[in-house]
C-alpha cells in the first residue's frame, strides 16, 4: 500500500520534472513574446510543481487530488465544481477576462486584462477569496483587499473551472502550523518579506501608486498562496523557499504579526519612529508644556 504510493509519487515527480520543466521555458518564452507593451514582462504560468513526497491521485482517473508534506498540503479543487465555477465565472469575471478566461472580453481590446488560463488554482483562489476580484475599480493601479463578493466555496469553484481549461499548479494550500517553527519564520520574514511589508507587517506605499498590503488580517492559506504565486507586483517565492520555510513564515505572520503581544503598552499602529515622534512631541512635550502653563505665571 505505502510502497505503491511512494512508487506513484516517484513516477509523478519524475514525470513533472521531465514534463513541466521544459514547459516553464516554453511558457516563459511565449509569455515574453505575447506581451503587448514590453519585451520583458514576466509570466506567472506554471508557478509550481508538486515536487513533494506525498501525492494522492484519484484512483479512477489518475489525476492529482492532493500533494504536499507535513508542512503544507495542496488540494486540487474538485472537478465536480467545474460547472458551478463556469457559471460563476461568466457572471462575475467574464466581462473583463472573457468567456474563455483568456483576457479577451467580448468587446474589449486584447491585452487590457490578464489571461488566466494556466495560472493554477491557488492564484485564482487568492484573488477571489481576498476580495480583490471581482475588481471594485478596474482602472485602479492595484486591486485592494475587500470583503469578498464570492464566498470561499465559490472561489474554489471558479478556480476549478479555470484550472480545468489548462491544469496547472500550485493547488490550494493548507498549511499545518503545528509543525512550523516560529523563530525560523521570524528570521525568514525579516530577510524575505520585511523589505516590502515592513518588519511589523503593516505594508507601505511603493513605486508608482502601488503599495504593499498590511498582513494583519490575512488567513494563513492566503499567505501561502501569495508567497507561492506572487500576485501582482509581489515577487514569487518557489524554489528558494521550501514548504517548511513557508510554513514557518506563515506561523510567524499569523501569530506575532497578527497578534503581537505588545508587552510595552499600545503598539502605536506599528508605524515605528514616526508615530513615536508624534506621541513623544505632542503627548509628552505637549502635556508637560500645558502643565508648565499651569505652574508658571501667564501674562
Amino acid at each position: 500500500m505505502t510502497s505503491s504510493l511512494v512508487k506513484r509519487a516517484a513516477i509523478f515527480t519524475f514525470a513533472t520534472l521531465v514534463g513541466v520543466g521544459p514547459l516553464i521555458v516554453f511558457a516563459s518564452a511565449s509569455g515574453a513574446s505575447g506581451s503587448p507593451h514590453t519585451a520583458y514582462q514576466t509570466t506567472r504560468k506554471n508557478a509550481g510543481t508538486p515536487n513533494s513526497s506525498k501525492v494522492t491521485l484519484n484512483p479512477s482517473t489518475g489525476v492529482v487530488i492532493s500533494y504536499g508534506n507535513k508542512y503544507i498540503t495542496y488540494n486540487a479543487p474538485s472537478t465536480a465544481l467545474v460547472t458551478l465555477g463556469q457559471a460563476l465565472f461568466l457572471q462575475n469575471c467574464a466581462s473583463c477576462h472573457g468567456t474563455e478566461a483568456n483576457g479577451v472580453p467580448a468587446n474589449g481590446t486584447v491585452g487590457s486584462f490578464p489571461d488566466l488560463v494556466g495560472l493554477g488554482p491557488a492564484t485564482i483562489d487568492f484573488w477571489v477569496d481576498s476580495g480583490r476580484m471581482p475588481a471594485a475599480d478596474v482602472r485602479a493601479v492595484q486591486a485592494i483587499r475587500h470583503t469578498p463578493r464570492l464566498n470561499p466555496a465559490q472561489a474554489v469553484a471558479i478556480a476549478a473551472w479555470v484550472n480545468s481549461l489548462s491544469p496547472s499548479y500550485p493547488d490550494i494550500p493548507t498549511p499545518n502550523l503545528k509543525n512550523a517553527n516560529v523563530s525560523d519564520g521570524a528570521a525568514l520574514f525579516a530577510l524575505n518579506c520585511a523589505s516590502c511589508h515592513t518588519i511589523e507587517g503593516d505594508g507601505d506605499a511603493l513605486a508608482s501608486d502601488t503599495f504593499s498590503p498590511s498582513l494583519r488580517n490575512i488567513p494563513a492559506f492566503e499567505v501561502v498562496e501569495a508567497v507561492r504565486t506572487g500576485p501582482a507586483n509581489m515577487p514569487r517565492f518557489t524554489g528558494n523557499l521550501s514548504d517548511q520555510q513557508v510554513d514557518d513564515i506563515v506561523k510567524y505572520v499569523t501569530t506575532e504579526i497578527q497578534h503581537p503581544n505588545n508587552p510595552g503598552g499600545f503598539g502605536l499602529g506599528g508605524l515605528g519612529p514616526v508615530a513615536e515622534g508624534f506621541v513623544g512631541l505632542l503627548l509628552g512635550v505637549g502635556i508637560l508644556i500645558l502643565i508648565a502653563y499651569w505652574v508658571g505665571e501667564r501674562q
Partner: peptide, 18 residues
C-alpha cells in the same frame, strides 16, 4: 519585533527617531 540586525536584512518604512 524588529529582530537582530544583519547587513542584508532590511525593513521598509524605517525612519530614525524624530
Amino acid at each position: 519585533q524588529f529582530g537582530p540586525y544583519t547587513a542584508s536584512r532590511i525593513s521598509y518604512a524605517v525612519q530614525p527617531d524624530w
